[in-house]
Computed example of a mutant assay.
Amino acid sequence: MGQKTAIIFVADRNFLVPSILAMLQISRQKDTMSVSDLFLFTTDLNSEDFQTITNIAKNHGIKTINLDLNKVLNEDQSLSFRKTHISISALGRFFTGSYIDSKYENILYIDGDVQVVGSIFDLANADIPDGKILGVIDRQFLKAKERDKSGVKTREYLKNIGVLHEKDYFNSGILAAERKTWINLCKEAFDYFINNSEGCMFHDQSALNAVCVGRRLPMSPKYNFTTMFAENNVLDIVQPSIIHFTGAEKPWFSKARPWRGRFMSSYADLLKQFPQLEAFYSLREYFHSSGQSGLSKIDRHANRMWFLTRILTPWRIVLRRRRLVNYLKTKQFFI
């Protein structure tokens, strides 16, 4: 009996090192690998660099695929892509399904800015209903109920993409679906993005949420423990298997809260193990793609927002955590 699930990562040059680290963490899970294979899609490497990555990956059971975005993204299409720390390679996920052999029942997509700290066997081995996708609530779940300008903007955003209740909006960093469902939903989402790119504030995530209304099954944040959950101090309640570092403060360079540099050493250790990866570890390129001027600016901004929230609106911290804890206690998760 073959592997059930294809676990896929999509990475441009800036996210190759963290993606490889996360994939190696998965590769050490014997139970997960008994039902899964790992696939790394690269989006912007020349043939020499792709071979370098392939040589590292193949020794750890990771299959590499060169995804040429210039071919799959029609140059005649005029797309609006809001400048953030996210690059246009995020759209690459929409084209991955056709590269995955039909022998795999499921696709489990994972962003590269994660650390896998516990078993994901149950997720990799899940029996997912046809036509459904598994995902975890995102920050909009908390912001949409608030009465400030950010809350108003959040509600307008959700309404514009057809999401009627904030609990139905999901983070796109970790998703799971049957292979055929994944292909169909990704095609729908890309078509939506082409026609509505200016309204897709969060790029591929916005498009996926727009087309998946009524088709998303709630997944436990154990498998996508975003920065939102860490900020609201629910680590002990959730006990995550995948920590997802959302926002611009990535753990391979940032010492900002809530993690304060806790994971930085693991990336340094990876570079010692594979010094050839140094060529793919340019923080300067990350700054350029994110519109940031440097490490200190990213951390200063994050820490400033942390303090301002707690000084100017301390009630918000209490209410957000209360709402999140209540959700965790009362929600029935598919997995």
Rank of each mutant, 00 (worst) to 15 (best):
I128T: 12
S290T: 12
Q276P: 03
F50C: 04
A124N: 08
R310D: 11
L164H: 11
I100F: 01
M23Y: 03
V17R: 02
Y99F: 15
T32V: 12
T246H: 00
L319M: 14
A126D: 05
S206N: 09
V35S: 01
V136S: 07
F333E: 10
D44Y: 02
T52V: 14
L40W: 02
L324E: 03
A279E: 14
M228V: 14
S150N: 14
G199L: 08
Q205Y: 06
D12V: 00
A57Q: 01
N326D: 14
G61D: 02
W182R: 05
F50D: 03
A302H: 10
N70I: 08
P314T: 10
L24D: 02
E188R: 15
V136K: 01
W252R: 06
G97L: 02
T309K: 14
F245M: 00
L319G: 05
A248S: 13
Q292T: 12
V325T: 13
Q239G: 01
G162W: 09
N59M: 06
K71H: 11
L134C: 09
L270R: 00
A90D: 13
W182Y: 15
K143E: 13
L91K: 05
V116H: 02
H60W: 07
A144K: 04
R310K: 15
R284A: 11
N171K: 01
S34K: 11
N125T: 08
D269W: 04
S241I: 12
T330Y: 08
Y281F: 15
L142I: 12
A6S: 11
S220Q: 02
K132Q: 11
F95Y: 12
K329I: 08
V234M: 09
N55R: 14
G214F: 12
K83Y: 06
E178N: 15
L40D: 03
R215P: 09
F81T: 14
R304I: 05
A22L: 04
R28S: 12
E178L: 09
K4S: 08
N106A: 09
H203E: 09
L324K: 06
S266T: 12
R310V: 03
V114T: 15
S47E: 14
R257L: 14
